[in-house]
C-alpha cells in the first residue's frame, strides 16, 4: 500500500485505468468518424454529380442556351448572365465596401452614429439572402421600375448582399497593417488621406481581395434573392446587355431540376459541374492570394 492509500497495481485500479483509456480511444474514434462522415457526404455528392453529369459536358452544351429540348439545351446563356451580373456586383460592391471599410477603420469618430453603422453592417452580413431579394423586389422593381429579371437588378441586389462581407474583410485587413506604417508616413508630412491611400490600402489589398473573391463566390452561387426579382425567365438567347432578361447559372440549375423530362437530369448535373468548377477556381485563387501575399508583421 502506498502513502496515498491507492494501490496502483491492484486489479481494480488496472480495470479502472483500462476503462478510462478505452473511453479515450472511443472518444477519439467518434471524432474521426464525425469528420469522415462529413467527408463521405461531400464525396458522395461530388461523385453522384460527376457520374450523372460528365456525359453531358460537351462543346454544344457549353456554347448553347436554354431550350425546351434537353438534348439541345446548353449553359452559355446562363453563364453569360452570371458574368454580367457579377460585373455589376463587383463594380458596385468592391469600391463601396472598401471605402466604407476605410472610413470605419481610419476616419470614423467614436460616437453613436458610427456604432449604428457598425451594428448594421455586422447584421446585414447575417441577414438571410432571401430578405435581400425582397428588398430588391420592393425597391428596385416596384419603386424604381428597373427592368425585371435583368443582370442589372440582379447585380445590384447581390451587391447589397456582398458589400457587408467585403467591409468586414476589408476592416480586418486594414486593422492588420501595423500602426508604425501610418506613423512613419504621417511623420514625413503625409496627410491622413495620403497615408491611407498610399501606404495602408496597398498593404491591406491582398486581404481585401481575398474577402472580395469569397464574397463574389457566394454571390455567384446564390439563387434565392434572384428568384424574388424574377430572374427565372426562359431565355433561349444569351443576354446582350445589362438590361436584357437573363438567367444565371444557379437559376438554370434550379429551373432544369424542375423539368419533368428525365433527360434534364444530365443537364442539371452538368451545369452543377460547371458552377462548381467556377466556384472552386475562385476559392483556389483566394487561398493562393492569401498564402502568397499575406504578411505577418
Amino acid at each position: 500500500m502506498s502513502k496515498t492509500g491507492i494501490d496502483w497495481k491492484s486489479p481494480a485500479a488496472n480495470k479502472r485505468l483500462a476503462a478510462r483509456y478505452g473511453a479515450e480511444r472511443r472518444f477519439k474514434a467518434i471524432g474521426l468518424a464525425a469528420i469522415l462522415l462529413s467527408m463521405a457526404f461531400l464525396a458522395f455528392l461530388l461523385v453522384s454529380m460527376l457520374s450523372k453529369g460528365l456525359g453531358g459536358l460537351d462543346l454544344a452544351f457549353l456554347s448553347g442556351s436554354d431550350s425546351t429540348e434537353a438534348s439541345t439545351a446548353g449553359v452559355w446563356g446562363a453563364v453569360k448572365g452570371s458574368l454580367l451580373t457579377m460585373i455589376v456586383t463587383i463594380t458596385l460592391a468592391l469600391p463601396m465596401g472598401v471605402l466604407a471599410a476605410v472610413y470605419l477603420e481610419e476616419f470614423a469618430p467614436k460616437n453613436r452614429w458610427v456604432d449604428l453603422v457598425e451594428v448594421s453592417i455586422n447584421n446585414l452580413a447575417a441577414v438571410p439572402s432571401i430578405i435581400f431579394g425582397l428588398l430588391g423586389l420592393a425597391v428596385f422593381i416596384n419603386i424604381f421600375h428597373l427592368p425585371r429579371s435583368s443582370p442589372m437588378v440582379g447585380g445590384m441586389t447581390l451587391a447589397l448582399m456582398t458589400m457587408p462581407v467585403i467591409v468586414i474583410a476589408g476592416r480586418n485587413a486594414i486593422k492588420a497593417v501595423p500602426p508604425s506604417i501610418r506613423d512613419a508616413a504621417l511623420a514625413v508630412g503625409a496627410s491622413k488621406v495620403q497615408t491611407v491611400f498610399h501606404h495602408v490600402l496597398p498593404l491591406a489589398l491582398p486581404g481585401i481581395l481575398t474577402g472580395a473573391i469569397i464574397g463574389m463566390a457566394r454571390a455567384l452561387g446564390e439563387t434565392a434573392p434572384l428568384l424574388m426579382i424574377g430572374m427565372r425567365a426562359f431565355v433561349s438567347t444569351p443576354p446582350a446587355g445589362f438590361t436584357d432578361p437573363s438567367s444565371v447559372l444557379p437559376m438554370q440549375i434550379f429551373l432544369w431540376s424542375d423539368e419533368v423530362d428525365r433527360a434534364f437530369v444530365q443537364n442539371t448535373s452538368a451545369a452543377i459541374i460547371v458552377l462548381l468548377v467556377f466556384l472552386l477556381t475562385m476559392n483556389g485563387v483566394a487561398i493562393y492570394f492569401r498564402n502568397k501575399f499575406e504578411t505577418r508583421w
Partner: peptide, 23 residues
C-alpha cells in the same frame, strides 16, 4: 474624399433602413 468615404459607409444604414422600411 472624406465625404465620399462617409457616404459609402452610410450605404449600409440605407440598406438596413430599406429592408426594414419595405418589409
Amino acid at each position: 474624399v472624406q465625404f465620399a468615404l462617409l457616404a459609402a459607409s452610410l450605404l449600409a444604414i440605407l440598406t438596413t433602413i430599406g429592408i426594414i422600411g419595405s418589409l
